[in-house]
Structure formats: structure tokens, C-alpha cells
Design a protein around this nucleic acid. Structure first.
Lengths: 221, 221
DNA sequence: TCAATAATATGACCAACGGTCAGTTACTGC
DNA sequence: GCAGTAACTGACCGTTGGTCATATTATTGA
């Protein structure tokens, strides 16, 4: 006995080493310019072996991306577990997302592909569900904070908590994306610091969903 | 005379017919699943001929996308030329973007690729500049309206007009994107109508950049 | 009018890729 | 040892973006 468990562990660690190799290659070249041959070589495995663990290049890509999502969720969880006042927590969550981008740009870039039209056509059903489930958990986490803010009368109760979460998350995501590939251009050609734009939009949105009570608290943060 | 001009015209019309064919294929299958062979067949040309007019598949893709951008710019121009009060114009511009999405989903989807990391590596310098120039003109158009709103004291003058344009545009873009590929999911699993979310976020952002004077006008629209 | 020249178009061809699978190797239990 | 199973291999396949020697068509000039 214990053999099946050991096999299980070995299989899992083999999978991890494949993800390690894939990550190295994907980080450097992105999805399209990376090849399964190079990933196989990096992992010191035959290409065929990769397909014993993943249905497609895209599946493997998403499993690497999941590592990034896990990091982000952990960072969010840490903030939330501080159990600070809601307003402060929301501000910190926004800052945390920015910090995640700064220290994990490669993961952040990978997330972009999830929104690509036709991308999911090349992804297996299981992997898709796995990602969906994970995303779900992120939404729930943020939505719960917002709900707490409403019961505490810091956030406007006439709005839908999940909708607020969607708006704030989408806004931050799209601006970080822009920072990632247009920051220099906006700086040079238009003298705009997109980091500042992001901070500002976060503030504008936060204020606009808060009660007077909440806004007061926001100013003290 | 005018032989060189006629040649020019012929070349241009050949190019148009290539774009026609490419559009048909790209609309149906997206960038990755479309093949140059199929585009050539649709255009009733040899594949080699396509490469006399475009450096790469991606270049051709972007030229199709430009058609969409031109449509959008025309729609914006029409709204602006009505010379309605600033606040009303801004609301209409937001609605126009949504309308553009509704009637030109395929073009809208293509625009997504412009933000893809590493995408520009496969695009020629000229095509990239051509796109940049076009984008620039869109930014300018919107920024000018916002500036007018500031001089008319409808919009807060302590904010940067271009930054406001970036925020509003980015917010609408990302939510339309989400509507495009997650509307059904949010509807079924979470009972959220993303169209409503988009309208709301537009309103929240608009209000948050307006003076009291402007907000009054907003309520009458 | 027609050969010379230039401009345009062709499609067989190539290298590179994602993915497959018949065959090999390594491990397990008896 | 040895049969049976699980894991691994890499030559191979079909498809693709892109190339280029060749062919076709259009233009020129005498």
C-alpha cells in the first residue's frame, strides 16, 4: 500500500515540473510565440509526455495562469483577514491589485487571454470549469466585503454589491492593462501618468458608491 | 494621362477586395482559426498575391479592424456635430459606443487584439503607426468635448480632460467586452444584467466628474 | 504592330508548429 | 525472473504562414 499514493504524488510533482517549464517559456514569449517543443525541452521531457498531462497548449497555459490567480487570491485574503473597517479594506484591495500587477506582471498578462474571443474553443471543458470556479471565488470574496459595507451603512444600499465589484474590478483591470502596454506612450506623447489615472479612477468610483458616512471615513484613510 | 492614378485606384480597389474577403473569414473564425489560404480562396486570388499587399496575417487583420474604427469615429463625429450641450453629448457618446457594439460586434471583438501582449511583434511598423494615429484622433475628439465641458463649468476643472476620457473609454470598453463573452453566465449564475451594470457605471463616472451645475443638467437628460 | 520591359499574379514549395501513436522503458506484484 | 501495467519517447502527420522562381498581363517606344 501507499504505492498508489506515492504514484499520485509523483504524478503531481511531474505536473508541477511541467508547469515550471511552461511558465519559464510562456513568461518569455507569450502564448503564440511559445512552442510545445521548447517547453518539452525545458522540462527535459519528450513532447508526447506533455500531452499525457495536458490536452492542449492552451490548457497548459491556463494552468500556469492559475498560479497567478492563486497568488492574487492569497493577497486579497490577507488583506481581508486583517478585518479592518470596510472602507479601508476596499482601498487596500485596490492597492493590492496594483501591487500584484507590479510584482507579477507576467501572470497579469496571461490573464488577458482569458477574455480573448475564441480562446475557450481551444480549451478543455474541465480546465474551463476549473478557471470559472476560481474566478467565482474571487468575486464572492469581494462581494462579501461590499455587502458588509452596506449593512454598516458605509456603502450605498441602493446598488447591487456584485455590480459594484464588477465595475471596480473591471476598471482596475483595464487600466492596469493599459499601463502595461501604453504607459510610456501616454507619458511621452500626452504627458499623462496612467498610474495616477488608475488611482484617481479608483477614488472616483469608490466615492460614488459610498454614503456620506463612508466618504467621511474615506478621507481619513 | 493619369495612368499612374488609374493604377493607384486599381491597386486600392484590389486591396479593398482583399479586405472584403479577409473580413468575411476573420468575422467567422477570429484571428487564429482563420487561414491565409481560406482568405485567398475567398478573394479568388493566390495566397502569394495577398503578400504583395500585406506583410503578414496580422497586418491584414488590423486593416479590417480599422474599418470598424472608422465606423466608430463617424458615429462619434455625428453625435458631436449635433452641437448639443456638453452633458447631453457625453451621455450620447456613451450610448453611441454601446450602439456601436450592438451593431458591429465583429469589429468590436477585433479591437480586443490590439491590447494583446506580444501582438504588435507580428505587426509591421507602418501598420502600427497607422493604428496609433487613428487612436490618437479618437482620443482628441473626446478630450475636446470634455475640455469644453470644463470651460462651461459643467465638468470639474480640477481633473485632467484626457484622464477623464481614458477612464470613461476604458470602463465602457471593458464592460462591453464582458457583456460580449460573459453576459449569459452572469445572468444565469448571478442574476446580473451586465447591460445595466454598464449603464450604471457610466452614470456613476459621469456624475463623479461633474460640477453641481453639470449634475443638474444630467438629471434632465 | 510588335518586341522589350515592367508590373502583377501564381501556386508549388518550405520550415515550423500542435498534436498523435506505435513502440520502448521502468516499475509492480507474484 | 516474468507477465502485466503504467509512464515515457520521438519519429511522424497534417496544417499553416510565408517565400520565390516562374508565368501572365499590361505598358512602352520605335
Amino acid at each position: 500500500m501507499g504505492i498508489t499514493e506515492r504514484k499520485e504524488r509523483e504524478k503531481e510533482s511531474r505536473k508541477e515540473s511541467i508547469i515550471d517549464a511552461a511558465q519559464k517559456v510562456f513568461f518569455e514569449k507569450g502564448l503564440n510565440l511559445s512552442t510545445m517543443d521548447e517547453i518539452a525541452e525545458t522540462a527535459e521531457l519528450a513532447k508526447g509526455t506533455l500531452y499525457l498531462y495536458y490536452h492542449s497548449k492552451e490548457d497548459l497555459y491556463l494552468d500556469v495562469m492559475m498560479r497567478g490567480l492563486k497568488i492574487l487570491r492569497t493577497m486579497f485574503k490577507t488583506v481581508i483577514d486583517h478585518k479592518l473597517p470596510v472602507v479601508q479594506t476596499l482601498v487596500m484591495l485596490a492597492d493590492t491589485y496594483t501591487a500584484f500587477y507590479e510584482t507579477n506582471k507576467n501572470y497579469f498578462r496571461m490573464m488577458h487571454f482569458f477574455n480573448t474571443p475564441q480562446f475557450h474553443k481551444q480549451v478543455s471543458e474541465e480546465m474551463m470549469q476549473s478557471c470559472d470556479r476560481f474566478n467565482q471565488s474571487l468575486w464572492t470574496m469581494i462581494t462579501e466585503i461590499i455587502e458588509r459595507g452596506m449593512t454598516e451603512k458605509k456603502l450605498r444600499a441602493d446598488l447591487n454589491p456584485l455590480e459594484i465589484a464588477i465595475i471596480m474590478w473591471s476598471n482596475a483591470s483595464t487600466l492596469l492593462m493599459r499601463i502595461d502596454n501604453q504607459h510610456e506612450m501616454f507619458m511621452k506623447k500626452m504627458n499623462i501618468d496612467l498610474n495616477n489615472t488608475l488611482r484617481m479612477s479608483n477614488m472616483l468610483l469608490l466615492e460614488s458608491v459610498m454614503t456620506e458616512h463612508g466618504k467621511q471615513e474615506l478621507r481619513t484613510v
